[in-house]
Simulated assay, not measured.
Amino acid sequence: MPIDTNVGSPNSRPDHEQHKRQQQRLSHIEEELLDMRPDIHDEDLRRAISKWLLIATRARAGDAEEHVSSLLAEIRRDNPMYRTREYDSGDACFPDRCKDCEHYGVACPVVTDNDQIDRRERIMETADSQSELRRQLRDYAIDNGCVVLQEELTNIAETVQPLVEHGQLLLMAAQDVVFFQDESEAVARARAAKETLEDLSVGSVAADNLDDLDDLESQLDAAEETEWGY
């Protein structure tokens, strides 16, 4: 019986909605920082904003299809992904990272079942957004018991939250700087942005964190090296 690709797992919808909200917050912060950047004359803050915008652009450009294709190519390298007569044990046909998958040592449906390969290709061709693509691929991974694919999709989603938090710190710091400059149009934009950000409930930020731009730069550097790998 063909598998209905439109039926999602009961746990995928909350994750999808949360990721969608994070993407909306990220877009809002990115737009506000782009608008405010020309009005920022503090060199350290301007440099931190520029770095964050670069990281945000790269992170938002992350393509789930590319991530998944690279992952599957990696795990298939030198691994047949099904038990063959050439090996004494089926485990030897799989990479160690697949040990927690239910098909480990037997046959991986994600790369050996033509029906599942066709289903994955249809998902990649028909998904109308990156968030929808991730949601459908998450359901696909759950249906096939692929722990590795589930972890990869979770990692993609989890890069957004720390980026939002860093962006919020920068936006609030930029608003404080602009407020002390003058009552220009930039101040009006900053006031509106602050109200919108509070409505979005991005999260609480300790006030003393806004005073330490050097520490903020360190956080961004760490994020750049460990979270996004750029």
Rank of each mutant, 00 (worst) to 15 (best):
Gln22Gly: 05
Gln22Ser: 11
Gln22Leu: 11
Gln22Arg: 07
Gln22Ile: 08
Gln23Asn: 06
Gln23Lys: 11
Gln24Cys: 01
Arg25Pro: 00
Leu26Thr: 02
Leu26Ser: 07
Leu26Ala: 15
Ser27Trp: 07
Ser27Cys: 05
Ser27Leu: 07
His28Pro: 03
Ile29Ala: 02
Ile29Tyr: 01
Glu30Thr: 12
Glu30Val: 04
Glu31Arg: 14
Glu32Pro: 00
Glu32Trp: 01
Leu33Thr: 03
Leu33Gln: 02
Leu33Tyr: 00
Asp35His: 01
Met36Pro: 05
Met36Asn: 05
Met36Ser: 08
Met36Asp: 03
Arg37His: 11
Arg37Met: 02
Arg37Asn: 02
Arg37Gln: 06
Pro38Ser: 13
Asp39His: 14
Asp39Thr: 11
His41Ala: 12
His41Ser: 14
Asp44Leu: 14
Asp44Ile: 01
Leu45Met: 08
Arg46Cys: 06
Arg47Thr: 14
Arg47Gly: 10
Arg47Ser: 14
Ala48Lys: 03
Ile49Tyr: 02
Ile49Asp: 02
Lys51Gly: 13
Trp52Val: 01
Trp52Ser: 01
Trp52Phe: 13
Trp52Pro: 00
Leu53His: 10
Leu53Val: 09
Leu53Met: 09
Leu54Tyr: 12
Leu54Val: 01
Ile55Trp: 01
Ala56Thr: 04
Ala56Cys: 11
Ala56Ser: 14
Thr57Val: 04
Thr57Pro: 05
Arg58His: 12
Ala59Phe: 12
Ala59Asn: 08
Ala59His: 07
Arg60Val: 05
Ala61Gln: 15
Gly62Leu: 15
Ala64Gln: 07
Glu65Cys: 06
Glu65Met: 05
His67Asn: 11
Ser69His: 07
Ser70Cys: 12
Ser70Ala: 09
Leu71Gly: 00
Leu71Asp: 02
Leu72His: 01
Glu74Pro: 04
Ile75Arg: 00
Ile75Glu: 02
Arg76Pro: 05
Arg76Ser: 11
Arg76His: 11
Arg76Gly: 12
Arg77Ala: 15
Arg77Gly: 05
Asp78Ile: 09
Asp78Glu: 13
Asp78Tyr: 10
Asn79Glu: 10
Asn79Tyr: 11
Met81Tyr: 07
Met81His: 11
Tyr82Gln: 14
Arg83Glu: 12
Thr84Val: 13
Thr84Ala: 10
Arg85Val: 09
Arg85Ser: 11
Arg85Cys: 06
Glu86Asn: 15
Glu86Ile: 10
Tyr87Gly: 03
Tyr87Trp: 15
Tyr87Phe: 12
Asp88Gln: 13
Ser89Gly: 09
Gly90Asp: 08
Gly90Lys: 08
Asp91Cys: 08
Ala92Gly: 11
Ala92Met: 10
Ala92Pro: 04
Cys93Thr: 04
Cys93Phe: 03
Phe94Leu: 07
Pro95Phe: 00
Pro95Glu: 04
Pro95Arg: 00
Pro95His: 04
Asp96Gln: 14
Asp96Pro: 12
Arg97Glu: 14
Arg97Ser: 06
Cys98Ile: 03
Cys98Thr: 01
